[in-house]
Simulated assay, not measured.
Amino acid sequence: MNTTTLPAAAADIRNRRDAIADRSFRWLVTGAGVLVLVSLAAAALSMLWGGREAFARFGLGFLWSDAWDPVNQVFGALVPIYGTVVTAVIAMAIAVPVSFGIAMFLTEIAPKWLRGAVGAAIELLAGIPSIIYGMWGLFVLVPVLAEHVYPWVDAHLGQWPLIGALFSGPPLGLGMGTAGLVLAIMVIPFIASVMREVFLTVPGRLKESAYALGSTRWEVVWDVVLPYTRSAVIGGIFLGLGRALGETMAVTFVLGNAHELTASLLMPGNSIAATIANEFAEADSEMYRSSLIALGFVLFLVTFVVLSLARLMLRRLARREGR
């Protein structure tokens, strides 16, 4: 036997083994990706199937009906949808500027010895379970708002002609405004962490060049840092919005859980997640249970649409930037 053929045979065996390993790895990661899509479709279809009775009886009117009467088996999703959207909008209106300020402070202003401590505190806040936020909101924030904040808001802002309907009502402390505030405190650590990380990716030479040309710190942030990290910042904001839309326990504690459609932020309301959490164990009929599952499907659609819009916006920004 020719000994020169042995290294060639060994190399051929090794190449076949590498090809099999590479092909197996490709199928493995492809299966992982397909598993995500299958799980997503399975979750959506299971909720749609579970809510089929509600959709069959109420049709699309289920989405804009404000009725919720378990006794007479009449249900509508408008009040939970409205509460979910309003509380999420309030949360983002508070959380985005605060998160931006925190990220700017940590990357541009804070001394090095303070950045680590504040960064660790933000990560700790992000790891606190949502039920802790809800309990804190109920036992600490609600009494403070009911005694010291909402009476002033009702007496002063509630009398204005255009925005009075938003800020008038009894100072209960529970309501959509309180829920939005608690949600804002919850999502601030997530958005601030993302913003801080992406702001740190800005090359120092860009900022130093802007300072050398006489730009102020605000001009550097607005004209250099934000344009460079715009796509990632928007992605972080929508990540926080997705968390706010689907939050359950924190909102359940402070929202008031009232199926009433009202414009006032001081009045109790309801959200999709809170309705499902509060009433699923009490659903004593198939139609009641089907309506709650249909609410879950609606929440799935709302979250999917929001995240899809985020992806579309990021893609348009990337195309505009020539990437």
Rank of each mutant, 00 (worst) to 15 (best):
L78Q: 11
F75A: 02
R315T: 14
P151W: 01
R26W: 04
P129I: 04
G119L: 02
A244V: 02
F105P: 08
P111F: 02
D22A: 15
T3Y: 14
W136P: 09
M1E: 12
V220S: 10
L226Q: 04
S215F: 05
S271I: 01
A44T: 10
P151N: 10
R320H: 14
P170F: 08
A95G: 05
G269F: 10
A21K: 13
L226V: 15
G158E: 05
A91R: 12
S308R: 01
V254N: 01
R17I: 11
L295Y: 07
K207A: 09
S193D: 08
P161F: 02
I234E: 00
R52I: 04
D69E: 10
G236A: 05
S99N: 04
L28H: 07
I13L: 15
G116V: 11
P161E: 00
I234Y: 00
I20G: 00
L145T: 05
A273E: 13
R26C: 06
A42R: 07
G169S: 06
G164D: 15
A232V: 04
T275P: 11
A41F: 13
A146S: 14
F253V: 04
I81C: 08
F304R: 00
G137Q: 02
A120C: 06
L261D: 00
Y82F: 11
N278C: 05
F238R: 09
I20E: 06
V79A: 07
A9D: 12
G83I: 05
F139N: 10
L261C: 03
E282Y: 14
L40T: 13
P161S: 02
V182K: 04
T252E: 15
Y133R: 01
G158Y: 04
M104V: 13
V98R: 00
L292P: 03
V140T: 12
R243L: 09
F304H: 03
M287P: 00
L265V: 09
R14D: 15
A117N: 01
M249R: 01
V79P: 12
P151D: 06
G51S: 10
W49F: 09
Y288P: 01
A8L: 14
R230L: 13
D154I: 07
I131P: 15
L172F: 06
I132K: 15
F167L: 15
A212Q: 03
V202H: 11
W49A: 14
V251K: 04
T84H: 12
A277R: 02
L213K: 10
V34C: 10
N2L: 11
W27K: 14
V187M: 10
L138W: 02
R315F: 12
D154N: 15
M176W: 01
G83M: 03
L145K: 00
P111H: 06
N257T: 02
W218S: 08
V254I: 09
L295C: 11
L174K: 13
V182F: 05
I131T: 13
G59E: 02
I131D: 12
P203H: 04
G214W: 10
L145A: 00
S24R: 15
R319C: 05
R17K: 13
D66Q: 04
T229C: 15
T5G: 13
A41S: 10
M267V: 03
F25E: 14
L48C: 11
L265W: 09
R217Q: 11
V182R: 02
L295F: 08
V302A: 05
L226K: 06
A121R: 09
A277K: 04
F105R: 05
T3S: 14
L37W: 10
I94G: 05
L174E: 10
